[in-house]
């Protein structure tokens, strides 16, 4: 069934069209290419959403290796919905930015701006769909670099300062997330979320401390990236100094991608019976 490969095709359309952009001289063609590719991938995401609503969630193997050996996508209703939301909102923002971007960004950077936006949305779709911890980490770093790029594109003093602050803090966050993946890998031996959950349910009684610390590492690391309350210090500078269309992208989409990844890690990797034993949800949602 070829509808099942649509999530991967949506990501590949965005990334490959980004690779083509530096070769195009005319700026209007680049703007059109960005809008068209985003529109196509939002249509693909809509078809996927309808398909998932009819037939239930499905697993798509990338390459032809079965689950614990290769990388796979798992597309359920929330992933399909978030994928459609991300691509359609990004398409609307790009439509707006086509008419307003020349007021804020110098002409020689416009091509790179649309390139980075395409890569950013592709990486966010990767985070949303992927069912593999390390693959999510790679896409997380990709989206961090791209979102730093769309902040610094304005080339003002404050932008560069805010971008460096964002970059240093989010590198700290991704270091903590990678440490969490290392802990989880060393007690389960799997990187695939479904298999890691199956394994961690068996062994978490033996490694109580480690499971708690791993939860803390994931929460703090992704909390820095998604600007949760005590860890939000980079956000005001970065969002206020960015160009207005980048600011819309950042606050509407980028942070939500990381929040969805945290939800996936909490519920799909650890599972409800483990997180109910620790007060982690009370800390995140501030409900005591």
């Amino acid at each position: 069934m070829y509808i099942r490969s649509f999530p991967l095709v949506a990501i590949l359309i965005l990334l490959v069209s980004a690779f083509v952009m530096p070769m195009i001289k005319k700026r209007s063609i680049v703007k059109g290419l960005s809008l068209v590719s985003m529109g196509i991938s939002s249509i693909l995401a809509l078809i996927t959403l309808v398909y998932v609503k009819e037939n239930g969630s499905f697993i798509y193997r990338i390459g032809h290796w079965d689950a614990p050996w290769g990388i796979e996508f798992q597309i359920g209703i929330i992933e399909a919905m978030m994928g459609f939301l991300f691509t359609s909102v990004a398409a609307l923002i790009i439509w707006y930015s086509i008419y307003s971007i020349h007021k804020e960004i110098k002409d020689n950077r416009v091509v790179f701006y649309y390139l980075l936006v395409n890569i950013l949305i592709g990486a966010l779709l990767g985070i949303v769909f992927s069912n593999d911890l390390f693959n999510s980490f790679v896409f997380m770093e990709l989206s961090t670099l791209a979102s730093c790029g769309i902040i610094v594109v304005k080339d003002k003093k404050e932008n560069i300062k805010a971008t460096l602050k964002y970059l240093v803090l989010s590198t700290l966050g991704s270091g903590l997330v990678l440490m969490g993946i290392a802990f989880l890998y060393s007690i389960t031996g799997h990187l695939n979320m479904t298999f890691a959950h199956r394994e961690i349910v068996k062994v978490y009684a033996d490694y109580g401390q480690t499971v708690l610390i791993t939860l803390g590492l994931f929460t703090v690391g992704l909390g820095v990236k998604s600007a949760m309350f005590p860890l939000h210090t980079w956000l005001p500078d970065a969002h206020s100094s960015a160009p207005s269309s980048s600011s819309a992208l950042l606050s509407a989409l980028v942070l939500k991608g990381f929040v969805l990844l945290l939800v996936k890690i909490l519920y799909r990797v650890f599972g409800t019976e483990i997180i109910n034993q620790f007060p982690i949800l009370n800390l995140i949602l501030i409900s005591f």
């Binding site: 990334l15 690779f19 290769g70 990388i71 592709g122 790679v138 990709l142 791209a146 730093c148």
Partner: peptide, 18 residues
């Protein structure tokens, strides 16, 4: 795990562009 390596190549490309 070729998809990871594809992501890694995109990271290098993005860093160069940035």
């Amino acid at each position: 795990r070729a998809f990871d390596t594809f992501g890694e190549a995109v990271v290098l490309f993005t860093a160069a562009v940035a």
